[in-house]
Design a protein around this nucleic acid. Sequence first.
DNA 1: AATGAATGAGCTTTCATTCAT
DNA 2: GATGAATGAAAGCTCATTCAT
Lengths: 213, 213, 213, 213
Amino acid sequence: MNENRQNIICATERLLQTHGLARLTMREIAREAKVAEGLIYHHFKDKAELIHEVVEQRMHDAKNVLQNLPLQVGLRTLSENLEEVLSVVYRSHYEIVPIVCSVFADHQLRARMREIMKEREVGPQHAIDGLAVYLAAEQRLGRMAETVIPQAAAKCLWMISIQTAMDDQLMEQKPDAARIRQEIRQYVQTIMAGLEPRLPAKQKTTFKKSQKS
Amino acid sequence: MNENRQNIICATERLLQTHGLARLTMREIAREAKVAEGLIYHHFKDKAELIHEVVEQRMHDAKNVLQNLPLQVGLRTLSENLEEVLSVVYRSHYEIVPIVCSVFADHQLRARMREIMKEREVGPQHAIDGLAVYLAAEQRLGRMAETVIPQAAAKCLWMISIQTAMDDQLMEQKPDAARIRQEIRQYVQTIMAGLEPRLPAKQKTTFKKSQKS
Amino acid sequence: MNENRQNIICATERLLQTHGLARLTMREIAREAKVAEGLIYHHFKDKAELIHEVVEQRMHDAKNVLQNLPLQVGLRTLSENLEEVLSVVYRSHYEIVPIVCSVFADHQLRARMREIMKEREVGPQHAIDGLAVYLAAEQRLGRMAETVIPQAAAKCLWMISIQTAMDDQLMEQKPDAARIRQEIRQYVQTIMAGLEPRLPAKQKTTFKKSQKS
Amino acid sequence: MNENRQNIICATERLLQTHGLARLTMREIAREAKVAEGLIYHHFKDKAELIHEVVEQRMHDAKNVLQNLPLQVGLRTLSENLEEVLSVVYRSHYEIVPIVCSVFADHQLRARMREIMKEREVGPQHAIDGLAVYLAAEQRLGRMAETVIPQAAAKCLWMISIQTAMDDQLMEQKPDAARIRQEIRQYVQTIMAGLEPRLPAKQKTTFKKSQKS
DNA sequence: AATGAATGAGCTTTCATTCAT
DNA sequence: GATGAATGAAAGCTCATTCAT
């Protein structure tokens, strides 16, 4: 049955949250999942693959919302759409950030993880690409400035989501939905409006236009 | 001597950046510092204490760098200033990211880091505040849109820097100054211009054409 | 069915030759034989019994090959005949060497192999005897020096074949027919000619003249 | 002290002889040598390196006799020298054959072993080369036939030694000095004299000379 | 007969820490 | 202060074997 497989993944997740990756041993996962150690290797090639699976499952909601993004093209405002997406993405990021950072600290595990992501053609890049595709579509509708590079904008938004999650984890802030929504709205609005003054102001110093026709 | 103590700390930091915390062994530290393994235990109670010391020192160094950002209110263009500042910030982030991420892998270390950040008033918030103050000043000069919340903008820029650094570390990209400069420019331009189309157009649906006023 | 049983044996033998005994797992055997792991235990009590069966069968096959050597008394040259025969012997040796060597790693298996060799009258001795009989016949025809002990000569040739096969396996050289032929020719020529100088020279130091009785 | 290092090697050798490589575990070596498991890795990089060391030490006598071979050039008869050398070499071979064959059965171990031999520039090839150099010297003195290829002859002799040892191990024959001496003498004499009839005989069938002037 | 998920002891190797010198 | 040999408790992973289906 797949029940055991899911058991193992859940047990891993639980231990990851309570003890961190550094103290995560296969033996303890087995004990927590109430299965034999060997069974883990029946379902996952190695520890890295198991951890990868946990991350993938935690990113499930984010993936969903990104996949449904094409349906939102042209609907509501761009800001609203982005706030909605980022709220969901943030939530996933909040959950995987401690794992991803831990993997970061272990070069061997990191290398193996890259391998797995290459094999399966998954990873953050694909998610960012999805967001960029959506932005490009909005751009074609004239709902986003023509000068914007969709890839760059998508990456900015993505980075902000991850970093906010990292900050909150580091500061032990619970991911309160309302607070998050507000914070994200602030960032989205900042990115939407841009820093440049809107009107050709009568300034004394140089002011560089963003459009080089 | 104290020379040895500093040697050990520096060696540890070097290895932390290149190899990560997970595979950081006392033997390797000793070899890198050119001292005997046993000597480390004369200077530090155990491995955790040594790591703490390194984290503390590194955070302090980063604090100095980030609090002396070359912010030039009213001079050159805002874009140019931000690119300049983010390049410096990036460099510091690139170095500190492996350490911060290592901290995530170990709950004990994470708690300790929170303490350090509170006690010593180091941490991202203080540097971001510096950046926000600069932006507010530019705003008062009319060089930044009035609607922008300086704190939010500063944080966006900050997050982009740290996340770019993380990406580069993850992909094992050397921090080539030219490449970094170009990547940062892209993000800065995106944030400067914003995603919103520039002109309030006379359209029925919610989307506007972008062009100069 | 018995088809499965033979499948398993063949699969095991194939893996034994390519991967060696040490890393030979029941799982891999099952995969190679395209049966379930559990099925192996319906046909064989345990792994040891399966290996025994393989060794036994392989020894039997080798016996057949080696007892039907293409020995042609009085025809062509002796060298040519030996080269021809050793090429065939080599081929058989090349296949059986991984199995024989595997047996050395396990004392239990080694004892069992000795038993098999005695019970079934297989083993090197019988094939060498065949070669010796051939040499004796050639000797009677005057095509081999009278002083040679056929048994000793046969064994020398035999050993060279098996050791060459072992070398090739060790160095993971494929048994390319042409290369083998050439290498064997070199050894046959060495053995044919002998190391002793041909002419009774007028030298001061001791050396034994070779001549007919 | 080096006492422990030697203890470990001896313990390994003892276990190798009594249980074979298949049942040789690091834990048991440590117990037999009365040291901690970890200490083995202080002296040897891994299991392969330890086994290699055991083989090297067992080949010590053979190495010695091969190193002293140049001193024998031109002294006594060639036959006597070869018998002497092979007797010693056989003895070493008899001891290492079970180990070498076991390694043969484990492709992973085998690969690692090749690595070690390449690193340290040791291995059978170097020993055979030494023997060939000696034979070449004797050839220059006219004590060995000009047509012989020293390398080929040396390899023949070497192979015969190994294979005799393998045979004896397989058949559980104790390496009785007198019996060995006699067997080796037989092979040496066979190789010395060669199979070709000495005199241009009045034969009816073709007879190929080994010397193509 | 046939399957393959499940077991768990055991493997090699790593590494923080101790301690006699 | 300084050394590095020695310890031994884990760690990740393997694999022959069992058993419910």
